[in-house]
């Protein structure tokens, strides 16, 4: 039976996925760099949070410190990567950028192995969110409910950022027409740095928040990046709204798949992607681009 619990599972998964996919999509929109390492950032965020919790514990709200630290560390890592390496590749063929971010995936995967070995690790739920909540129609784990709330808040927050702030306008302008950026009198390298670091922070925070809900293990980077790719392919590369809808669709589809075709739920997601590619190659909210 597909019921409220499955729906909520799908919703919390979808909203978490949105957080990661949004960063990927924004980075692509502004920098025109497809960041394969985004899954690596997510995984690293989870491990950083684990490490902080291991050292300082998670009582008295210290888990939130771990989440913030994970976001900051990943923002710094991403900023360093952009400033000292990626930046040198902007004028080269796009295949060099693709290969570079792909190399980062390998590197981050091994950094995690070096520091935390390969055994699966887990972070317990923060004390204030342990247990289950009675929602009237069903009982549901508090932490997962919290993830839903975070996802919604983040989505609204990003929307406000993009619609209402100067930074948001700059980023939207950059997504539509990169040449417009410099004519707006904006410090373009600064925008790139900030967007890449911001995307990194978003991935790091998502990883940290996901840590209590699932086990940390090698290979989660590949899993999440493939899911993110499918999200942006379904929603439309570079479209935030598309990433939102794509992530929610995939969340629900996963929940349905786990209920009815356990083990093979991943195939359902690919089928959805293929259907979208056949009928709307540029994604549900993507724009057809010239020259094709």
């Amino acid at each position: 039976m597909f019921g409220a619990i499955q729906f909520l599972n799908g919703l919390s998964h979808g909203l978490s996925l949105f957080l990661v996919a949004a960063g990927l999509s924004i980075i692509f929109g502004v920098l025109r760099v497809l960041n394969f390492a985004h899954g690596g950032f997510y995984m690293l965020g989870g491990y950083v949070a684990y490490e902080v919790v291991r050292r300082i514990g998670m009582e008295h709200g210290l888990f939130w410190v771990a989440v913030i630290v994970a976001g900051l560390v990943l923002a710094l890592v991403a900023a360093g990567i952009e400033r000292f390496m990626l930046r040198q590749l902007y004028n080269r063929d796009q295949i060099y950028q693709l290969l570079f971010t792909f190399a980062l995936v390998l590197l981050i995967g091994d950094v995690v192995r070096i520091f935390w070995s390969t055994t699966a690790l887990s972070v317990s739920f923060p004390p204030e969110l342990r247990g289950a909540q009675n929602l009237g129609f069903t009982i549901y784990p508090r932490y997962r409910l919290f993830l839903c709330v975070v996802g919604v808040v983040a989505a609204v927050g990003l929307w406000l950022l993009f619609q209402r702030t100067r930074w948001g306008r700059i980023i939207r302008a950059a997504t539509q027409d990169r040449e417009m950026l410099s004519s707006l009198g904006v410090n373009v390298p600064m925008v790139y740095l900030a967007v890449f670091a911001g995307g990194g922070a978003l991935a790091g925070i998502s990883g940290a928040l996901a840590a209590p809900a699932l086990a940390l293990r090698g290979g989660m980077d590949a899993e999440i990046i493939v899911e993110c790719f499918i999200v942006v392919i379904i929603g439309g590369l570079g479209s935030l709204w598309g990433a939102f809808i794509g992530a929610l669709l995939i969340g629900q589809l996963r929940a349905i798949g786990i209920t009815f075709v356990p083990e093979w739920e991943i195939v359902l997601i690919y089928l959805l992607m293929i259907v979208v590619l056949v009928f709307r190659p540029w994604g549900l909210f993507g724009k057809k681009q010239a020259g094709s």
Binding site: L34, I225, V226, F229, V267
Partner: peptide, 23 residues
């Protein structure tokens, strides 16, 4: 499916389908 769109889509889709074959 992989060659229909841009080189970026090509890279994403080859990775995704590769992982599907693995799964």
């Amino acid at each position: 499916f992989c060659v229909r769109l841009t080189a970026y889509y090509f890279s994403m889709l080859t990775l995704a389908f590769g992982q599907l074959v693995w799964a």
